[in-house]
Design a protein around this nucleic acid. Structure first.
Lengths: 147, 147
DNA sequence: CCTAATCCTTACGTTCACGTCAGATTCACA
DNA sequence: TGTGAATCTGACGTGAACGTAAGGATTAGG
């Protein structure tokens, strides 16, 4: 049910130190739960969140500070989810939250699509180069046959 | 015709220090040309090469050491191009060079395609999340109309 | 040919993203 | 209830990827 920092680290493929560091930077909520002992306790959701942070970091190649800015999105969405759970939210407020979340998603999408496009371009170049190399190899193979 | 290190840096959007650093690591040929003065002189080709290094670094998110290994590909291809220019290369040697180049390209492709796939996945997730948010916004818009 | 701009090497400094160690505290469990 | 394992908070260490400063040589332009 509740995981300790070491468990979370293993589940997410990282280390306790990294988790504390991310918390210190504000990439993770400042202290999910701290029973009287002072030890951090996490839920499965926190593991997911951490996995997502790591994934974004690797895929987008941004600094942790930039990532923190981007992750305002996640927090906003978490807030939205939490607030939207209750049915008694004023439609106006609902709209506000959703629009904010949408903006953040849009920013992430732009970043992702930009990188995806660059990668696709690179991939295309590599493919055509490989094609040329293959052709030359075929040419080499044909000569001895015709000779 | 021949560019100095500062020109190359500007053209490639980096600094002289970085160029020297890359040369030191072996990412760039150890010293394109050094007339009696000792100053480095580059050609347009070197600028392209440097741009490519920077591009790969950013897109693949690898360390400079890993990148150096990957760039053995470029050097092999450069060698191939140089050697294939001359028509008097033994077909056997030709084949050898081409196969080597092919192997390097294959490695780059694997890396690129892996990252591209991950990015595509992330993009898909973001798109579907955006879709859901949009839907909820539409729902919000409809209620006042029916009321 | 003279001078400001650029370049050289060497070497120390810096930022990021953690690793690692110390000393004390807390937790799991036999 | 004791005890070994895990966690806590500092604090210092580290590797990667450069930045920056010093002191001297070189080059470009008027």
């Amino acid at each position: 049910m509740s995981l300790r920092i070491g468990d979370v680290a293993k589940l997410a493929g990282t280390t306790p130190r990294t988790i504390r560091y991310y918390e210190e930077l504000g990439l993770l909520p400042q202290a999910p739960e701290r029973p009287s002992g002072g030890h951090r306790l996490y839920s499965e959701d926190e593991v997911e969140r951490l996995r997502e942070v790591i994934r974004l970091k690797e895929l987008l190649g941004v600094t942790l500070q930039e990532l923190k800015a981007l992750l305002a999105a996640e927090e906003a969405r978490a807030a939205v989810r939490a607030e939207l759970q209750r049915e008694d939210v004023a439609p106006e407020r609902r709209r506000e939250l959703l629009l904010e979340a949408q903006g953040h998603i849009e920013r992430q999408l732009e970043l992702v699509e930009h990188r995806a496009a660059e990668l696709a371009k690179l991939r295309g170049e590599l493919l055509s180069t490989r094609g040329r190399v293959r052709e030359r190899l075929r040419e080499l193979d044909e000569i001895p046959v015709s000779a």
